[in-house]
Computed example of a mutant assay.
Amino acid sequence: MCKRIVGLNPIVFENSKILIVGSMPSIISLKEQMYYANKTNRFWKVLEVIYQESDKIKLLKTSHIALWDICHSCIRKTSADSEIKDIEPNDIQGLLETYKNIDKVICNGRTSYNTMKKYFPDIKTVYCPSTSSANARFSLEDLVKIYKKEIYE
């Protein structure tokens, strides 16, 4: 039987302008208490290429990016999004009301996007392909191009 897991708190700053929303942190990310901690996930590589900064928190702060996940908690056996069940969503609406500078929400992957649309249909969101290594359809270069376009648009 799978047990309920709880995600991470948001990383957000007073000057955040973009919120990137994932689905639920991987088992590795939960263990390390850091978003996208699995070395095979290309999220940080994408942002490092775009911003030429390797310090994760400094990168987020100087690029005005906040991170959170749509799932506050869920039941999941492995790290695969396809196994996510019984979602309790995070209060994305509340975060946006608190941090009024955030004017763009980008979803990292289809699960994040579809779940945002289900729980927060009135929040305008942009879909970007998942940075997970399981999403082999997109190269690092493809992901950089897509995310850069959405970040700067």
Rank of each mutant, 00 (worst) to 15 (best):
V46F: 07
Y36P: 01
V49N: 09
K61R: 14
L60E: 07
Y51I: 08
K45A: 13
F43H: 13
R76S: 10
W68H: 13
I50C: 08
R76E: 01
K39P: 05
W44Y: 14
S63H: 08
T62V: 15
M34T: 06
Y35V: 01
T62H: 10
Y51R: 08
W68E: 11
D69F: 05
D55K: 10
A37N: 04
Q52T: 08
A37H: 00
T62L: 07
S63F: 08
L60W: 05
L59Y: 11
Y36N: 06
Q52W: 03
V49M: 05
W68K: 04
K56G: 05
D69Q: 11
C71L: 12
I70G: 03
S63K: 10
D55F: 11
I75G: 03
L47Q: 05
K45E: 15
Q52Y: 04
T78Q: 08
F43R: 11
N38R: 09
I57D: 13
A66G: 04
S54D: 13
I50N: 01
L60N: 08
W44Q: 06
I70R: 05
H72E: 15
V49P: 00
N41K: 00
W68I: 04
K61L: 11
R42H: 10
C74R: 07
V49R: 12
T78F: 03
K58V: 13
M34E: 04
R42L: 12
K77L: 13
D69Y: 10
Y36T: 00
S73C: 12
I75S: 13
S73W: 06
V49E: 15
Y35G: 00
N38T: 04
N41F: 04
L67T: 00
K77T: 08
T40P: 00
I57F: 12
H64I: 02
Y35T: 01
K39G: 07
I57T: 14
S73R: 14
L47A: 07
Y51S: 03
S54K: 15
Q33C: 13
S73A: 15
W44S: 03
A66I: 10
Y35A: 01
D69P: 02
V49H: 12
K56S: 00
A37L: 05
D55E: 11
Q52V: 09
F43P: 01
W68G: 06
C71G: 09
K58E: 14
C74D: 11
M34W: 00
S63V: 09
